[in-house]
Every structure is written in C-alpha cells, then in structure tokens.
Design a protein around this nucleic acid. Structure first.
Lengths: 140, 140
DNA sequence: GATATATACTTGCTCAATCAATTATATACA
DNA sequence: TGTATATAATTGATTGAGCAAGTATATATC
C-alpha cells in the first residue's frame, strides 16, 4: 500500500518536530529549563502588564489547566515566576516573571534563537518564510 | 525584541504538531491505540521479514530503548504484537505484528489517512508536496 | 435574593516516557 | 584463552502531563 501524501507529511513533520524539541531541550538545560518552561516564559515576557492568567497561559502553551498548575509550581519554587491575585476576580491567579526569571529568560532566549538558527540553517531565508507561511496555512 | 524567523518557525511548527497529534490520537482512540502505538505498528507493518529489533523500532519511532520496552508490554498483552528471538544474536528480541495486530492496524490506517487528509485539506496537493520537501530538507 | 450554572484553579490518581543502573550476550585484542 | 569493551534489552525511580473530581468564586435567571 502506498502511503498517502498527507500521512507522509504528518509523519515526517512529527519526526522532525520531535528532533527539534530534543535539540532545543538539550540546549536549554544549560539554563536549567525545559522547552515548555521556555515557552511559558516566552509568553509571560511578551504579555501586556507582564502577566497572564493561568488559563490564558495554558491556551498559549498548549497545556491543560492542571498541566500549567504543575508546571508553575517548581518554577515558582525556583524563583522564576510569581503569583499575583486579580482584584477584579478572586478566582484568577495571575502569573508573572520575576526579575530573576526575566534575566534567565533573556539568557535562554539567546540560546534558543541560536539553536533554532542552527536547526534551520539548511534553508535560505526565503525558504523559511515559505515554510512558515505553509505552516500557518495548516492552522486553518 | 523582534523574534527571529527561525524561532518563529520552530514555535509555530511545534504548536501545529501538538495540535495534529491531539487530533490523530482522538481518532485512533476508537481503535484503542495511541499515536505512538500506531507508529510502532506502522513501522512493523512496513518492515522486511515483518519484524524489527527493539533498537531499530526505537530509532524509527523516536523513543528510547526503555520507552519501547514499556510501550510493547501492553501491546503484547493486548495481542497486537509478539516477540521472537533471533538465532543470530541471543541478545536481540524481534518484534512483529500478530494477525490481530495487522487487522487492527489496517483499520487504524484508514482512520489515520482520513484524519491526515482532513488536517491538510487547507493545502493543495502541490503545496503539500512543497511542504513535505521543505520538511525533508530540514532533516539534513 | 436564592438557586443553578459556569469559570478558574488545584489535587489525586494514572500513564507515558526518560535516565541510570543492571543483566545477558557479543566482539575485540593482548 | 581471558579480559575489556560494546551492544540489546529490561527494571527502578522519577518526571511531565492528562483526566476527573473538588473547591472557590462569579454570573445568570427565576
């Protein structure tokens, strides 16, 4: 049986992504954080008011609510993030980067960008743009 | 700080893949198997002599050796795969699909192909080919 | 205002996967 | 031949994540 194009695409795609994350994880471990933790910090860093609610964070990072709770526990213990409560809604717990967190994120970001550049160095800029555009297209 | 193209690419790429796997997992659960179990069966199905060594399987699927051992245990219990020993090398344990395993794989494959087609339906065939080619290029 | 429903988060339990250590066997070489 | 090293697989301990259930608070409706 010949394998359909779409399946071949998904399988190769998945394989590549697994490889990417492993490489990035290895690099980030120098800073003591994982890929997912990096993504958490990345979104917190870019958020307005420098803070996000847990559900928002979960949505961005692609984790469940409980996944976020568990992920943040050690990060808080390490002093990377801190909790704040919302005075608008007593249910929500806002998360933000601490100063130490920001500093570590800045360092990690350099590693991250460096690694992604290495991972995609077999592509020209134009190809990367094309590839990104096609990736975006698949979201719809 | 503007985010570099390569990093944007990797992040979007990762996000998309997570989404893909979730959708496929949901579909495959009808057949009682996960994405990774599907991949195991997929490689076993395509292997010559219908069997693979655990290390080979691990390499293909992108798991560690122990990951494969643990993954195969329940699959064996469910009767999807069986063990064989190699007469060339007493250390190796060959894995192959059982008849039941083949049958379930065939059903699952239909679901899988159907789902991947749905996931990529926003792309023309030509775009899919382009995308696959770019993906392959990143492996080097 | 009281009751029902929805939302934000946390906790207990479970599963999948990893690493490090272990066992068994194979290969290399002094 | 015997000893060191390498390889295949498994096992114990740990981690990351999910789901289902629970708690606290908010909103909607009667």
């Amino acid at each position: 049986m010949t394998i359909p194009l779409a399946s071949e695409l998904v399988i190769q795609f998945n394989k590549l992504q697994t490889r990417f994350v492993k490489r990035i994880d290895a690099q980030l471990s120098v800073h003591g954080i994982s890929y997912t933790e990096y993504m958490v910090m990345y979104y917190l860093n870019g958020a307005e008011n420098d803070s996000l609610r847990r559900v928002e964070l979960a949505e961005f990072v692609g984790l469940s609510a409980s996944g976020i709770t568990r992920m943040l526990m050690p990060m808080q213990k390490m002093g990377l993030v801190q909790k704040d409560s919302s005075h608008r809604d007593a249910r929500v717990s806002l998360v933000k980067l601490t100063l130490a967190g920001k500093s570590i994120f800045n360092d990690a970001q350099k590693s991250f960008n460096h690694t992604t550049a290495a991972l995609t160095r077999s592509m020209t800029d134009k190809q990367q743009q094309k590839f990104l555009a096609l990736t975006q297209q698949l979201f719809s």
